[in-house]
């Protein structure tokens, strides 16, 4: 039986497996973080996965984006992801959406999601996703990397968001340094947080910025606070 080993986990059990099967997760961005996110959510039997991306595979993706191979270069990532994940687990429904996210279309794209996972590589899109999820009260799992370092945290209305911590001021200088194994750690953690949210478990990283330092092999959590002047939260209320 496909899910036998995870049904053995008391926090999952058969009841939780049914919850996962009936869940809908929207993944935004189909790069390095999305490869483990999509793979592990498909493995876990999350019933419906949507993937939004407007990019094609290049050779510089292949050090970390393991959904794609050399033969896929030049093809839309969502198309390849659809083929790979559908073969991987035919039980899941996969919606590949080949479209660029912006302020005008994000609401419609995520409206059916139980959880959104942000796997994009730029600050502007993250801020759009952040506001849309707050506005629609959809939990959001954030993750990001730079070289040997990465972070993960979860967002919903009652807790701090990207704008609360001033993330909008971040000036990434593309291309961001990325080691495949580190991206894999962070993407896997995002998948774990997503599954915890779907199952209604405690301990989700709301208000907690989990930092990974691959050079010394450590995880450290920083408690973060909501900002009363956060425009994203004010926009919701």
């Amino acid at each position: 039986m496909r899910y036998e080993r995870q049904i053995l986990i008391k926090q999952v059990s058969e009841a939780g497996q049914k919850i996962l099967a009936n869940s809908n997760v929207c993944v935004i961005g189909s790069g390095g973080l999305a490869s483990p996110v999509l793979t592990y959510l498909a493995c876990a039997g999350v019933g419906t996965l949507s993937l939004i991306d407007y990019d094609t595979v290049t050779d510089s993706n292949l050090n970390r984006q393991f959904l794609y191979q050399e033969k896929d270069i030049g093809k839309p990532k969502v198309q390849i992801a659809n083929e790979v994940l559908s073969a991987f687990n035919p039980e899941i429904i996969f919606h590949p959406i080949y479209q660029k996210i912006d302020k005008t279309n994000i609401t419609e794209m995520i409206k059916d999601a139980d959880v959104v996972i942000d796997c994009v590589d730029n600050v502007e899109t993250r801020m759009i996703v952040n506001r849309a999820c707050l506005q629609q009260n959809i939990p959001l799992v954030e993750g990001g990397v730079n070289g040997f370092y990465g972070f993960v945290f979860a967002i919903k209305q009652e807790y701090p968001c990207l704008e609360c911590i001033g993330y909008g001021n971040t000036k990434l200088k593309p291309p961001t340094a990325a080691l495949g194994a580190v991206v894999g750690v962070i993407g896997s953690l995002q998948a774990v947080e997503c599954i915890k949210i779907l199952l209604g478990l405690e301990g989700v990283l709301y208000g907690k910025l989990l930092n990974y330092d691959g050079l010394i092999g450590s995880f450290e959590t920083v408690e973060i606070q909501k900002n009363d002047m956060c425009e994203a939260h004010l926009f919701v209320n």
Binding site: N146, G166, P175
Partner: peptide, 30 residues
């Protein structure tokens, strides 16, 4: 990102004894 006691703070924010300051460079690639 500059956090003083977990709160987003501008660099001209005042600091005092007992504060915990967390400083982050840009992180956010995927």
């Amino acid at each position: 990102i500059c956090l003083i006691n977990g709160r987003h703070s501008k660099l001209d924010s005042s600091v005092k004894d007992g504060d915990v300051i967390a400083l982050f460079p840009p992180v956010g690639g995927g």
